[in-house]
C-alpha cells in the first residue's frame, strides 16, 4: 500500500495556545480516514496546517513523498490536494458552473477553459447540481452549497480531498445521499480525510479513524477499535457507558 500523506509530529501554537500537539499519522492511498473529536479539538486546524493556510510550528507534512510543510495553499492544490470548508465559501457572484470551472482550471490538472467546462458539467451531474449550473452560487441553499464545495474539490481531480463537516446541517436523507457520494468518490481512487460530527455516518464510511482532543491525538484505528476505546469515549462524551451505547448503536 502506498502512503499518500504522512504527518509527523505536527504542532501548531497560536501564541500561548497549543491547537495541535505532536500529531502523527500515515494515510494510505485510496482510504477514507475519519477525523473526529469534540469541538475545539483542533480538527480544522489540522486541515489548515496540512493545506498551508497556517504555517506549522513544528513537525512535517509529506504528500506523495514530498515534504510540503508550510507550502502555500495554491501549491498544495496544484499538487493534488483539494478541500471543502466547514463554513462554505462559494464564489457568490459567479455561476455554479463557473465556481466548479475554477476548481478544474486551477487545481491539480490545471485544465484550460475549454477542457474544464465539460469536466465541471460532469462533476455537477455527479453531485446532482446540474440543473442549477446557470444560477449564481449565492442563490443556492446550504445543502446545495455543501455539494458545490464538493464539486469544486472534485473538479480538480485531486489525489486527496479534505472534507470539513460535509454532513453538518443536512437532514437524514441528505446525509444518506452525501455518504453515498463520499463512497463513490473513494471508489474513483481519491483518498479522503473527513472531519465529521455525525458519528453514525463517519463510523460507517471510514476505513481508519483518528481522534483528537485538545490538540492531541488520543486514539487511532479502525472504527471498531475506536468505538471501544475508553479514552475516546471519555473525551468525547464524558460518560463512558452512555457513549459506548450510542456508538454501538451507530455501528449496527
Amino acid at each position: 500500500m502506498t502512503i499518500l500523506l504522512q504527518v509527523e509530529g505536527l504542532t501548531k501554537k497560536f501564541g500561548g495556545l497549543t491547537a495541535l500537539s505532536d500529531v502523527t499519522f500515515d494515510l494510505p492511498e485510496g482510504q477514507i480516514m475519519g477525523l473526529i473529536g469534540p469541538n475545539g479539538a483542533g480538527k480544522t486546524t489540522l486541515f489548515n496546517v496540512v493545506n498551508g493556510v497556517y504555517p506549522a510550528t513544528k513537525g512535517k507534512v509529506i504528500f506523495k513523498g514530498k515534504d510540503v510543510t508550510n507550502v502555500k495553499t495554491y501549491e498544495m492544490a496544484q499538487l493534488g490536494l483539494a478541500r471543502t470548508h466547514q463554513i462554505v465559501k462559494p464564489l457568490n457572484e459567479l455561476s455554479v458552473l463557473d465556481n466548479v470551472i475554477v476548481g478544474a482550471c486551477f487545481g491539480r490538472q490545471g485544465f484550460g477553459l475549454g477542457k474544464a467546462t465539460p469536466i465541471a458539467e460532469e462533476v455537477l451531474e455527479f453531485v446532482d447540481l446540474a440543473d442549477r449550473s446557470d444560477q449564481l452560487a449565492s442563490s443556492l441553499n446550504i445543502a446545495q452549497k455543501k455539494r458545490l464545495e464538493m464539486a469544486r474539490a472534485l473538479a480538480a481531480q485531486p489525489h486527496l480531498i479534505l472534507m470539513d463537516e460535509v454532513l453538518a446541517g443536512l437532514n437524514q436523507s441528505e446525509i444518506t445521499e452525501m455518504v453515498e457520494t463520499v463512497r463513490k468518490i473513494r471508489d474513483q481512487g481519491i483518498t479522503i480525510i473527513m472531519i465529521e460530527h455525525v458519528m453514525e455516518a463517519v463510523m460507517k464510511v471510514s476505513d481508519h479513524m483518528i481522534v483528537l482532543n485538545f490538540g492531541a491525538q488520543i486514539a487511532e484505528g479502525t472504527p471498531e477499535v475506536i468505538q471501544s476505546n475508553p479514552a475516546v469515549i471519555e473525551a468525547y462524551l464524558g460518560d463512558p457507558k452512555l457513549a459506548q451505547k450510542l456508538m454501538q448503536k451507530a455501528m449496527e
Binding site: 493556510v53 495554491y74 478541500r83 464564489l91 459567479l94 482550471c105 486551477f106
Partner: peptide, 25 residues
C-alpha cells in the same frame, strides 16, 4: 473571458477560497 480572468473573478469573490482551489493569487 479567459482562464486568467476567471481566476481574477475568483479572487474578487473570495481570495482565500480561490487560493485553496489553486489560484496563484
Amino acid at each position: 473571458t479567459s482562464k486568467f480572468g476567471l481566476g481574477l473573478l475568483a479572487i474578487r469573490e473570495d481570495e482565500d477560497a480561490a487560493e485553496v482551489m489553486g489560484v496563484v493569487a
